[in-house]
């Protein structure tokens, strides 16, 4: 059986005045129908660029997909002409963005913005599309959707707007929803509600979710499979339980230790990973994490480790496990 989504050796570079930024460099992962995959990493690690590459929404110039394939239901999206790509966007693959406050167009009513997708991809009449928009708003838990459908975005709270974005994403029963930090801009209580809603909808509609986040808490709650990214590369990949149980890569371990925990004894100090994500224009030679890794030895400084599979279904890019 073919996978729903297979990203193979994806390379997305940005060509700037100061050099070439390899935002995504040789990234591969796959996602089955109806499943949830999390891509984790600090900001600037290339996870959002990966998401936008799948949608083919990389601002070009300066960005460009320079290599690899993105197989969606067996079709390579990278090679698809723009017009065919448009019939997939918002239809079979839809996307939810980080900023609900600014991701909706302020001068159109939310109902019209949802209906627009239906009119475009499902050839619905305006009136039918509006009826369906009301239904979708009800589905994502917006109270009195009949009147809310006529609201402008500024009349809604952040959580509500994100629900609208989800309704819009669900409108055409997509096979895949890409959610780029969907809860980061929301209050903690709202975050949980939104994640729950996405999970439930994924279960009932059979939509696969590619969840992009920097928050391991979110990962633990939602994902089945996790990909950890660093400096444009996949550094670790494992099922969620395995990853939390036995994180291998020093970077993943660092991320784990930097989560505040309520249950365990308070004596364990919260750790931070020293340093910052290196500039994509000035990456270190060898392992890209070597300047922040306390286990780094001479080989790490000379040579970049390949992705290996020391345990069944658990791969890692580190010389420690070679």
């Amino acid at each position: 059986m073919t996978k729903l989504l297979e990203v193979q050796n994806l390379k997305t570079y940005f060509f700037t005045d100061r050099g070439v930024a390899k935002a995504v460099d040789d990234v591969s992962f796959s996602l089955d129908t109806g499943k949830t995959l999390c891509v984790v990493g600090e900001s600037g690690c290339g996870k959002s660029v990966t998401a936008l590459s799948i949608m083919r929404l990389i601002p070009e110039p300066p960005g460009r997909i320079v290599g690899g394939r993105i197989l969606f239901e067996g079709t390579d999206l990278v090679a698809l002409p723009e017009s065919r790509m448009r019939s997939i966007r918002g239809n079979k693959i839809s996307m939810i963005f980080q900023e609900p406050m600014t991701s909706l167009n302020p001068v159109f009513r939310v109902g019209d913005q949802i209906a627009e997708v239906l009119e475009l991809h499902e050839n619905m009449k305006k009136a039918d599309a509006m009826d369906r928009a009301v239904e979708l708003l009800r589905m994502v838990g917006i109270p009195s959707p009949e009147s809310r459908v006529r609201d402008y975005p500024h009349q809604m709270s952040g959580g509500m707007r994100q629900r609208v974005m989800i309704a819009m994403a669900l409108a055409c029963n997509p096979k895949l929803i890409i959610a780029d930090e969907p809860t980061t801009a929301l209050d903690v209580t709202i975050q949980a509600q939104i994640l729950e809603l996405m999970e439930e909808l994924s279960r009932t509609t059979g939509t696969a979710i590619l969840l992009i986040t920097h928050d391991l808490g979110v990962v633990a709650e939602t994902a089945e499979h996790v990909v950890v990214m660093y400096a444009g590369r996949v550094v670790e990949e494992a099922p969620v339980r395995e990853l939390f149980h036995d994180p291998l890569h020093p970077y993943t371990r660092g991320l784990m230790r930097s989560i505040p925990s309520m249950s365990e004894d308070d004596k364990t100090r919260l750790e931070v990973i020293p340093g910052v994500v290196p500039s994509l224009l000035a990456l270190p030679v060898g392992c890209k994490f070597n300047d922040r890794c306390r286990h780094a030895f001479d080989r790490c400084l000379a040579e970049e480790p390949p992705l290996t599979t020391p345990k069944e279904g658990h791969s890692v890019r580190c010389w420690l496990f070679h």
């Binding site: 949608m55 929404l57 448009r86 918002g90 963005f97 600014t102 909706l104 302020p106 159109f108 475009l120």
Partner: peptide, 26 residues
């Protein structure tokens, strides 16, 4: 440059609709 333009593109709208409907009215 706004986020909602990216949203409009992510909906699968053509550049003409994105520019002349979503962008122009703003």
């Amino acid at each position: 440059r706004q986020d909602y333009i990216r949203t409009a593109k992510a909906k699968g709208l053509s550049p003409r609709v994105v520019h002349y409907k979503h962008a122009l009215k703003n």
